[in-house]
Design a protein around this nucleic acid. Structure first.
Lengths: 222, 222
DNA sequence: TTCACCCATATGGCATACCGTTTTTCCGCA
DNA sequence: TGCGGAAAAACGGTATGCCATATGGGTGAA
């Protein structure tokens, strides 16, 4: 048979991750058509797991089932992006509040630790992206709400797909993110629910503004 | 061939809806195992669309993939229910605020109309459940945020599965719901964002309390 | 009678086959 | 050269087959 490399997790999962990564890394652009056949062929698997992975991507909103044309990579227009960030804002806000309320001592430590790690990584963009994930992951962990956590994860995926590798590009934004994270971590650690909520809201709103600026720049640059 | 009745929407969709309804109507209890084979056999379809529907249910959280035992109907323990309602609260709150901000005139009318319809239906439980859906659907429509709308729909499904047909059982709660809806509709129609948010929060919180009371009563009754 | 072991079966995961429809390609005609 | 149409390829949806594993029940031994 074929494609038995490091797949301890099933071929459907493999297909899901491969296509997902391809979208996030810009190998698949919004609007591109994607077929079960090609995906299966690409990954040397059969249509069944390929289909399964694609279906999952669709249910998460990264693919759109276009009536007469099959699956296409979802394109995020300005309106959709606005909605995504509005949703992220309310959820990150709630998560921050919940974390301030519910996080255990070690969980608070993890949040602060992730935040503290950032300044030294400011020049390594990939490391920043990683620790960024760690930071928000720690908050979600501390919030103890699996539903909000799951939902916001799929929103993150949509944003990442839209970014296509252009997040945290400029140093200015990185600096700002570090400050916002620090402030947020502090509020959560002090169990100041209202302040944590406020700072989480601001953080997402700022991210949205930064994102719009990057898009604007890209549009002018092309 | 088999099962070509009124399926204009595909067998996978059919399987999804059938199993989903079976769960919500209590024909399938939390903890029950469910297999592709049985589902396929039950609906006179093949395993493929059955599997597809079940997979979707799983991704929405109504089924749980138990490592060595296949799919089981997800059981919602007290902790999970608390998390569900916490998530619902922040989302309904946000949706109400967004509706107060973004809804068009006709959309506001639809919200108010649904609310106005309720008092006359108080004695018909099924009708109440329907108009309840209509009311919240109208708010979601007016909020113009497809992501929040989608997420809260899956939460609704989870709650419904847990209810298993025991929602709005007592007249007292029905009366209260009508009042809460009216107050919420009023706030939204007046475009009072803060008040709409507050009343939406209260509404969900009250629903949670009512739900807990019902569960308590059921537990004592058995 | 009880416990260990083995086999039949249920099941999930993957591959492949079939069908009807849509899309693409390519050729002949205008 | 451009266009319309038919043949071919691609595709999604569904059905079915194959294999490995897990589970449960039954049989034989202690």
């Amino acid at each position: 048979m074929a494609a038995r490399k490091g797949n301890a997790t099933g071929l459907a999962q493999h297909a899901y991750e491969a296509v997902r990564d391809a979208i996030e890394h810009g190998k698949l652009a919004p609007g591109d058509r994607i077929s079960e056949y090609k995906t299966a062929d690409w990954l040397n698997i059969s249509r069944t797991p390929a289909r399964e992975g694609l279906l999952r991507l669709e249910s998460e909103g990264l693919l759109t089932h276009h009536p007469r044309r099959g699956l296409v990579v979802a394109s995020v227009d300005a309106e959709a992006l606005k909605e995504v960030f509005a949703a992220r804002e309310v959820m990150e806000r709630a998560l921050a509040g919940l974390a301030a309320r519910n996080a255990s001592g070690p969980e608070l430590d993890a949040i602060v630790a992730a935040s503290d790690q950032e300044p030294e990584l400011i020049h390594d963009r990939n490391a920043m992206i990683e620790v960024n994930k760690t930071f928000h992951g720690a908050i979600r962990q501390g919030a103890h709400n699996r539903y909000l956590t799951k939902f916001i994860s799929t929103l993150d995926d949509i944003v990442a797909a839209d970014h296509r590798g252009s997040s945290l590009v400029d140093m200015e934004r990185r600096q700002a993110v570090i400050g916002e994270h620090r402030a947020l971590a502090e509020a959560i650690a002090n169990r100041d629910v209202a302040l944590a909520e406020q700072r989480a809201s601001d953080h997402i709103r700022n991210a949205y503004e930064a994102r719009k600026r990057v898009k604007e720049r890209e549009k002018r640059g092309e």
